[in-house]
Computed example of a mutant assay.
Amino acid sequence: MTVALVLFGYAVALAVFAGPLLRRARWVDRAPRLAIALWHALSVTVLASAAMAGLALTVPTVQVSGDLAALLRACVMALREQYASPGGAAAGATGAVLALAILARTLWCLARAALRAARDRARHRQVLDIVGRPDRGHGFTILDCAESAAYCLPGRQRRTVVTTAALQALDGGQLAAVLAHERAHLAERHDLALTFSAAIATAFPAVKLFRDAAAETARLVELRADDVATDRTDRLTVAGALLAVASHGTPAVPVGAMAAGGAGAAARVRRLIPPRRPLGRAQATAGSLAVAVLLALPVLVLGGPAATASQHNLCPDASVSASAPMQ
């Protein structure tokens, strides 16, 4: 019971307090890729901790066949001692339902979101095959449209799309910046990060952390793509390109497509004006360690009693058992 309470308390604490703290952190806009990893680590940790809490309740109620060797029977006795729950079978059943419900709901929403995005992208590609025309020199698709926009369709048949209005609004350097932005989305598979965070938020809408993670991921992938584009050109060129493609709105794009302009473009332009200040190596290392600790801690908590049980005399060494004389 103690293990289950610790894991569940850890999940609740992260869900309540971690999101606001991360949103107020000043460094996230300077290292968007690390911030995306941290948001995803928080979401995975909360889900895993809650599921493992249910699993910890289930462990002591699992029956072991009497045909197993004495070594395994003794080890099961030790594990029961460490994971013992005062609720008995009722607590174990509740834990099993909790763990299975979290796993099933998560997988269902992830699969549904991925299939929906793939379907919408396939339909949009069919439309582009009919109404779009390729630009052989730069490797993108030109779409006749009165709205200035550029976006990309990820997947196996990835596309980068630029409207004719955007081509008229962008100069050569700005067009290169927009293409670098969209290709950064494709190369780093930002669509997977967006699909994951949106699916988790849909699966558990009552958890504010998941809603914040989805919103922040959508914002941060754009910042990351902006940073990649600045490496190809310069910050002011990227800022001018964003203003050009966002000035007349963004046409409807399918689920899973990522547009350079649209919501948040003004804040992104303001971010690009001052000189870039990336995180130092020590700060980046600390952030990476935080991601690793978040993911590892629930596993260590769940496995702690098992490690303790392995030190008990009830769990004899396998080599000793194997060398014991046959009765």
Rank of each mutant, 00 (worst) to 15 (best):
I102V: 14
M77W: 03
L110P: 01
A74N: 13
S49I: 07
V64Y: 04
L38W: 04
A99G: 11
V3R: 00
G262Q: 06
L242K: 11
G262P: 00
A265W: 13
A118R: 15
S323L: 12
S49A: 15
P20N: 07
Q174G: 14
H190R: 02
R276C: 08
R24M: 10
G172N: 09
A199D: 13
G256Y: 06
V12M: 15
V253A: 14
T141K: 11
A113P: 09
G280I: 10
V207D: 06
S43Q: 07
T163L: 08
A48H: 03
A176S: 14
T164A: 06
G19A: 14
G261I: 06
L302G: 04
G87M: 08
A307V: 12
A218T: 08
H185T: 01
A282Q: 13
A213L: 09
R116E: 11
L236S: 07
A41I: 03
F210I: 01
S288L: 15
L47A: 10
E216F: 04
L107G: 02
W39I: 02
V238C: 01
F8N: 06
Q174N: 02
F210R: 08
D191P: 01
F210P: 02
D212W: 15
L272K: 08
S319L: 09
Y83P: 10
G92T: 05
P251K: 07
P20S: 08
A309K: 04
D212G: 01
A229Y: 10
T230E: 06
K208I: 10
T160F: 05
R156G: 11
T160K: 03
Q126L: 15
A267R: 10
V28D: 12
S49V: 09
Q283C: 07
L47D: 00
A244V: 11
F210E: 02
L38G: 02
A246C: 12
A292P: 06
A150L: 13
A166I: 03
A91P: 07
A286V: 14
A252D: 12
T94F: 14
R271F: 15
Q311K: 08
M77D: 13
M77R: 13
W27Q: 03
A198S: 11
P275A: 10
L22V: 00
G155S: 07
G92W: 08
A70L: 12
V76M: 13
V62M: 15
A13V: 11
I36F: 04
A176L: 14
A286Y: 07
A265V: 05
A89W: 12
A91K: 13
L55W: 04
L279C: 10
R224I: 03
R24I: 02
C152V: 11
T237H: 01
G256L: 12
L289T: 08
P60Y: 07
V161Q: 11
L297D: 10
T160I: 10
A263Q: 08
A324S: 15
A309H: 03
P134F: 01
